[in-house]
């Protein structure tokens, strides 16, 4: 492999507001190989916007600028919308937060997964169906035959998210961006879904960007972590060194989480004034 899979330099995302333009992502730079990168931060930290801007999913009036945004030798900033469409799904795909809102309610699960593949690689219907069932099986859905004919409202949240993952992985992309893939799910299913993502990603040697607000989860499933706050990367560290994190924001987040053997009478609350840049 030559060079990183994805390299981003000085990425800025700006939205106009009545009070003038607001930078929701402020000049961040990072690169990613075929590894698992976690981006952590709270609501409004710009982590999702970072993920979306890689796919150029930010629509006007939002503006994305970057000195460099190169994916596997392709300059994403220069790509036309048409070329981006060919890229999305096939090379880079994204698992969104909530299966309830990101699946098409009037298409069966099987049709949707099939469509994801058919768009990029037309194939006979019978073969397509076989691939869909195989993929549903890979995301550990029992009775794929039955589930493929269900509509999104007929499946549970965890199953919906697995359907999303199946849909995103069936074209075998090189990079998967998972934006809070499990925050709509409960713990036991969360671990399952992440294990599936992990297994498929490592098995296929893909790159993964896992965007989440859950530090521990990211630490568990990623190799490297970026902590974002207010549109900037405040800390970058290897996942195993998370407990040695230095930045007060990261430390604050770690401390604010209740532990399994909680004996603190009160949880420490982030003092947002302590590190606010402005």
């Amino acid at each position: 492999m030559t060079g990183p899979l994805l390299s981003i330099k000085n990425l800025t995302v700006t939205f106009p507001t009545p009070k003038g333009p607001v930078d929701v992502v402020r000049g961040i730079s990072f690169s990613l190989g075929r590894e698992r990168l976690g981006i952590v931060g709270e609501s409004g930290s710009g982590k999702s916007m970072t993920g979306r801007s890689i796919l150029k999913l930010i629509r006007p009036p939002g503006r994305v600028t970057a000195d460099e945004m190169v994916f596997d030798g392709i300059d994403l900033m220069a790509e036309s919308e048409r070329r981006m469409r060919a890229l999305r799904g096939a090379r880079i795909s994204m698992v969104m937060q909530d299966p309830k809102f990101s699946l098409n309610p009037v298409m069966t699960v099987g049709e949707q997964i099939g469509e994801a593949l058919q768009t990029h690689r037309p194939m006979p219907r019978r073969q397509l169906r076989a691939r869909v069932l195989e993929m549903l099986h890979a995301v550990r859905i029992n009775e794929p035959d039955r589930v493929a004919d269900l509509y999104p409202h007929e499946v549970s949240g965890g199953m919906g998210q697995r359907v999303m993952i199946a849909m995103m992985l069936i074209p075998e992309p090189d990079l998967l961006i998972a934006d809070e893939p499990t925050s709509a799910l409960d713990v036991s299913v969360q671990a399952q879904v992440l294990d599936i993502i992990d297994e498929l990603v490592t098995g296929k040697g893909m790159g993964l960007i896992l965007i989440s607000h859950d530090l521990n989860m990211v630490a568990r499933y990623c190799d490297r972590i970026l902590v974002m706050n207010g549109g900037e990367i405040v800390e970058e560290c290897a996942a195993r060194d998370l407990d040695k994190a230095r930045h007060p924001y990261t430390r604050g987040l770690l401390a604010a989480m209740p532990r399994m053997d909680e004996d603190r009478e009160e949880l420490p609350v982030l003092d947002r004034t302590a590190w606010a840049a402005t």
Binding site: L215, M217, R240, L242, M260, D261
Partner: peptide
């Protein structure tokens, strides 16, 4: 019992492991 991780039933322990694991940074 939860704090000590001493839940009795296998399913509870499974649930504990699923969320207990997320508590310890790898």
């Amino acid at each position: 019992a939860l704090k000590r991780g001493a839940l009795a039933e296998p399913y509870s322990r499974e649930l504990y492991a699923a969320s207990g694991g997320t508590l310890q940074p790898a």
